[in-house]
Nucleic acid binder design. Structure first.
Lengths: 116, 116
DNA sequence: ATTAGCAGTATCCTAAAAGATAGTGGTATT
DNA sequence: AATACCACTATCTTTTAGGATACTGCTAAT
C-alpha cells in the first residue's frame, strides 16, 4: 500500500512533467503568467521558437485546459492567448520553480573553475 | 529591464524542466526522496526503465549535484544512490508538483463524457 | 559447480520532438 | 499600389530520447 501510494505519486509527477515539460511548454506558461499575449508576441518573447512549434504547443495547452484562445473580430481580427483558471493555478508552482532554478544555477555553476 | 527580468525567469524555468524533465528524471528523484536506493532497486521501482537509460540519467543527475553515488566495499561491493543536500532541496517542489498533478488529473479527466 | 543477483556496457534501432524554410490569406499603413 | 504585420500552415530534415536486446565481470548462495 505504501508502495502503491508511491506509484501513484510517480504518475502525478509524470503528468506534470508532461504538461510543463518539453522544450517550450513551461516557458510558454511562464510567459503567459505575466499577461495575455498574442501569437507573435509570444513568439518574440520566447526567442527562437518556430511558428510550427508554437502552434502545436498552444493547441496542446488548450486541450489540457491550461490556456484559452480568444478571437476578437472588432476591427482587424486579433487573437489572444491567456491562462485559464486552471492554468493560473499553476502560477505558484512556477514561482517556486523559478526560485529553485536560481538556486540551482548557483550550485551547478559553482563547479566551474577558471584555468590560470 | 522588466523584459530582461522575464527572460531570466524563462531561463530558470527551462533549467528546472531540464533537471526534472524527460521521461525519467522526475520519477527517479521522486523515488529517491523516499530513501536511498541501489541500482536494481531503482530499476524495479521505476517499472520499465532500461538499464542503459537508468545509467545515463543517474550520471546526469550526479553531474548536476542532485544525486550522489556511494560505493561500499565492505563485503560484496554495493552501490547506493541518494539525494545530495541540493537534491533534497527539491523535495518541497516535488511535493507541490504531486499535489498539483492530482488536481490537474481531475480537471482534465472531467472532460471525459461517457456515451450512452 | 551452477545458478542467481548486482551493477552496469555495448550496439542497434525507432519514434517523436523540434528546427529550417517557404508560403498563405487577411488587414493596416504609408 | 506597395509594403508590412498578423496568425498561422505545409514540407522537409535533423536531432534526440529512449527502447530492445545481449553481454560482461563480480560475488553470494545452494
Amino acid at each position: 500500500m505504501k508502495n502503491k501510494q508511491k506509484q501513484i505519486q510517480l504518475r502525478d509527477v509524470q503528468d506534470v512533467i508532461d504538461v510543463i515539460g518539453g522544450r517550450w511548454r513551461g516557458a510558454i506558461l511562464a510567459s503567459l503568467c505575466d499577461k495575455e499575449k498574442r501569437f507573435n508576441e509570444l513568439k518574440r518573447d520566447l526567442g527562437n521558437i518556430t511558428p510550427r512549434t508554437l502552434t502545436k504547443e498552444l493547441k496542446y495547452l488548450e486541450m489540457n485546459k491550461l490556456v484559452s484562445r480568444e478571437v476578437d473580430t472588432s476591427g482587424a481580427v486579433t487573437i489572444s492567448y491567456s491562462l485559464t483558471e486552471h492554468g493560473k493555478s499553476l502560477e505558484p508552482l512556477i514561482v517556486q520553480i523559478v526560485a529553485w532554478g536560481q538556486k540551482h544555477r548557483k550550485v551547478v555553476l559553482a563547479r566551474v573553475v577558471l584555468p590560470t
